[in-house]
C-alpha cells in the first residue's frame, strides 16, 4: 500500500467519552524526553535525492500562514498564489516531479481573510484554514468563540484552528477542557478541527501529554503545538510528547489524529528533523498532509532554495525565488 492509499483510508477521529483513568495515567520524564529530542536528528540523516524528496513532502505539509494585524486581500492573495505554486517550475522539472502537482497543505488566515484566500485558491483542492475561538489567547466570551467557528465554516474554511483555554489545563480541570473542545468540534461540523494547545503556556511537559489526550477524546482531528504567538513555540520535545500521545490514542482506539507543529520553524533542516521525528515515532502512515502539517510562513522559502541547490549544485539567492 502506498502512503497515498493509506491516507485515503483515514477514518475521522470522533468524540468519545472522557476517560480520566487514561488522562491521569500519564508518566512523562522531561529530561529523557529532551535527550531523545536532542539526538533524533543526529541519528538519522537524509541526503541527495532522498533529501529532495523529503523536502518536497515537507512542502505538501505546510499550512502556509499569515496571521498579522496588517493582512489585506492583497498580501493574502499573493500568499495563496505561492501556495498553489510553491516551487519554481524549472526546479520542479529538473527534479522530475513537475507532474506531481505539488502544492502546500493549506493556507491559514484569520476569519476576515477567508474569502480572499478562497478566491485566490479557486480551482485547486487546497483548503483554507482559519484560526478561530479568540485566537491566540482564547479569552473572548465562550459563546462568541463558538460563533466564530460557525462563521468561519460558513465562510468556507475547511479547517478550523481552535485554541484551548490554558486555564483549564493549568487548573487541572480536564472535564472543562473536554467539554469546551467537544463543543468546538461540534461547531466545526464537516470542517476539520486543529486543536492548538499553546504548549509554551501549559507548564510542565506532562500537562502537554494530558491535554493532548483530553483533546483527542474530545474529537480533535489534529493537535497542534502553538499559535506562533507564545514566547516558546514548537519544540522537538513537545512534539515528542504529543506524537507519543497520538500513537497511544491510535493503539487504543484505532483512530489516527494528525499533528501540527507551528511557530518558529524556518529552516529546511528543521523541517527534516520533524519529518524524522514523525517517521520514527508515528511511522510512514503519518507522513502525509492528511496527518501532518507545519504551521509556517518563511519555511517554504528556505526549502525552495535548498531544492534549487540540489538541482544546480550552487547555493541559491533569496531574490531568485518568487515571494509569497
Amino acid at each position: 500500500m502506498t502512503v497515498t492509499e493509506i491516507s485515503h483510508a483515514i477514518k475521522r477521529n470522533p468524540i468519545m467519552p472522557l476517560d480520566m483513568d487514561i488522562v491521569l495515567n500519564t508518566h512523562v520524564n522531561p529530561s529523557a524526553t529532551k535527550r531523545r529530542a536532542a539526538t533524533l536528528a543526529t541519528r538519522r540523516s537524509v541526503k541527495k535525492n532522498w533529501q529532495a524528496a523529503w523536502l518536497l513532502k515537507a512542502i505538501t505539509c505546510i499550512d502556509l500562514t499569515t496571521l498579522a494585524g496588517d493582512d489585506t486581500p492583497g498580501n493574502v492573495r499573493r500568499l495563496a498564489a505561492k501556495g498553489r505554486q510553491p516551487v519554481r517550475q524549472d526546479i520542479l522539472e529538473a527534479l522530475g516531479v513537475a507532474d506531481l502537482g505539488i502544492t502546500v497543505g493549506a493556507v491559514c488566515v484569520y476569519h476576515t481573510r477567508i474569502k480572499d484566500a478562497l478566491e485566490a485558491l479557486e480551482g485547486t483542492s487546497i483548503p483554507v484554514a482559519a484560526v478561530s475561538t479568540g485566537f491566540p489567547a482564547g479569552l473572548s466570551p465562550f459563546k462568541q468563540r463558538i460563533e466564530e467557528i460557525y462563521a468561519s465554516v460558513d465562510a468556507g474554511a475547511k479547517e478550523i484552528d481552535i485554541v484551548i483555554s490554558r486555564e483549564h489545563v493549568l487548573q487541572g480541570n480536564w472535564q472543562a477542557l473536554y467539554d469546551e473542545v467537544c463543543q468546538m468540534r461540534e461547531a466545526c461540523g464537516e470542517s476539520h478541527m486543529k486543536t492548538i494547545l499553546a504548549t509554551g503556556e501549559l507548564g510542565p511537559l506532562w500537562n502537554v501529554a494530558m491535554a493532548s489526550k483530553v483533546c483527542m477524546m474530545a474529537g480533535a482531528d489534529f493537535i497542534k503545538t502553538s499559535t506562533g504567538k507564545e514566547s516558546v513555540n514548537a519544540t522537538l520535545e513537545v512534539s515528542l510528547i504529543m506524537t507519543r500521545a497520538i500513537r497511544e490514542h491510535f493503539e487504543r482506539t484505532g483512530y489516527k489524529v494528525g499533528f501540527k507543529p507551528a511557530g518558529g520553524i524556518r529552516k529546511a533542516k528543521e523541517a527534516l528533523a520533524w519529518l524524522i521525528l514523525i517517521k520514527e515515532e508515528l511511522g510512514d502512515a503519518w507522513l502525509t498532509p492528511q496527518l501532518f502539517r507545519f504551521g509556517a510562513s518563511s519555511l517554504l522559502g528556505d526549502i525552495e532554495r535548498q531544492l534549487s541547490h540540489h538541482v544546480t549544485g550552487r547555493y541559491a539567492a533569496k531574490h531568485h525565488m518568487p515571494m509569497g
Binding site: 502512503v3 537524509v46 541526503k47 541527495k48 535525492n49 524528496a53 518536497l56 522530475g96 510512514d284
Partner: peptide, 17 residues
C-alpha cells in the same frame, strides 16, 4: 542504485548517508 525523487516522495524511505 539512485532512486528518483519521485519514487522517494512516495516511499519516504531513508537512504545512504
Amino acid at each position: 542504485s539512485e532512486k528518483t525523487v519521485k519514487e522517494l516522495f512516495e516511499t519516504m524511505e531513508y537512504g545512504p548517508a
